[in-house]
């Protein structure tokens, strides 16, 4: 195996193991902490794929904002007694079977995947000459300007919705 393949193998094994650890922890706080390590590894994979901007976003938004949100909600709910009861549902075998069948099907479908012809113009050299963030920004603010604005509306809806849902009812 060449060095990039070894690098990828490390990240692939770690991502799989960490996600398995994450979904099997009894205490949600432990699950969140394993997920933090998992997200750092996914960010490493993004850097490996020449997506530095997304690696930074992955750390800042996922590890910095979303996981802290999860930790806050776990703290607010006070789940001490939930930890003692069993952690899987009654029909857990059905779920595991569904997941394994899904994995077998999707892996057998995508195993032979190849890059189609008609490569785009953003080669590694072209992106490197300009910088990844500038390239992403240029595409985002020209071709994808409307989706970008819609994303800001979605975030506004999320802010208002979270406040309305979580506020105390006024009697």
């Amino acid at each position: 195996m060449t060095a990039p393949q070894l690098f990828f193998a490390y990240f692939a094994v770690m991502i799989t193991v960490l996600s398995l650890l994450m979904i099997t922890r009894r205490n949600p706080v432990h699950g969140v902490l394993w997920m933090l390590v998992l997200f750092v590894h996914i960010a490493g994979l993004y850097i490996f794929l020449n997506a530095e901007f997304l690696a930074a976003i992955q750390i800042i938004v996922y590890a910095g904002a979303i996981l802290v949100l999860f930790l806050f909600v776990i703290m607010l709910l006070n789940l001490k007694k939930e930890e003692t009861v069993k952690k899987f549902q009654k029909h857990w075998l059905v779920g595991v079977g569904t997941g394994i069948i899904f994995a077998v099907f999707s892996v057998s479908i995508v195993r032979k995947i190849e890059v189609f012809p008609q490569l785009g113009k953003y080669t590694i050299e072209a992106v490197k000459a300009e910088g990844n963030i500038m390239t992403v920004g240029k595409v985002l603010y020209t071709k994808y300007l409307l989706p970008f604005e819609i994303a800001s509306v979605i975030l506004l809806v999320a802010i208002i919705g979270a406040v309305v849902l979580a506020k105390k009812r006024i009697e």
Binding site: T16, I23, L79, V96, T98, A103
Partner: peptide
């Protein structure tokens, strides 16, 4: 490329299993 897609499929399946089995 297929290695990445296989990794993605495997992690997605783990997510499906977690979604279907966890009580919390």
């Amino acid at each position: 490329l297929s290695w990445y897609i296989i990794l993605s499929a495997v992690v997605f399946s783990i997510g499906v299993i977690g979604f279907l089995t966890r009580r919390n």
